[in-house]
Write a protein that binds this DNA or RNA. Structure first.
Length: 119
DNA sequence: AGTATGACGTTTT
DNA sequence: AAAAACGCCATAC
């Protein structure tokens, strides 16, 4: 047995599991919901190491810009994108998701406004 | 205890 | 606007 997970981590796990199908949340948003608004980085560790163990819908967690946080060519990027597309999440041509439309909790989208669709 | 890693976020160059 | 710097947090070793 590994070291018991901290409350924060368990909280994060339970929150991630609550993200509805077809919606996405950001790392910072989850961290905030778990009580540590600045632990976005910690979230990445959790998803990286515990997603299999706890069957987390890790694909529904993206960064604050509404984009997938992997390099475009990586297999993980393609996997995540296909999983999301399968849930009816749409990507615009900049490979970004509108947090206004698909964000689980709209507050995250608020802050920064919708990702610029054209530039 | 100090360093390294991880899928981040915000501010400053 | 793009890139770098900085800050932040949880684990592994």
């Amino acid at each position: 047995m590994k070291t018991p997970l901290k409350d924060f981590t368990k909280k994060v796990i339970s929150i991630v599991k609550k993200i509805p199908r077809g919606k996405v949340a950001t790392y910072g948003q989850i961290a905030a919901l778990a009580g540590k608004p600045h632990a976005a980085r910690g979230i990445s560790w959790i998803l990286h190491s515990q997603s299999e163990e706890y069957k987390l819908p890790w694909q529904r967690v993206i960064n604050s810009r509404g984009r997938i946080s992997f390099r475009r060519k990586s297999p993980q990027y393609k996997l995540q994108k296909s999983l999301l597309v399968a849930e009816r999440v749409e990507f615009d041509r900049d490979e970004s998701v509108s947090l206004i439309v698909f964000g689980w909790n709209k507050k995250a989208a608020r802050k920064r406004g919708a990702p610029r669709m054209f530039s």
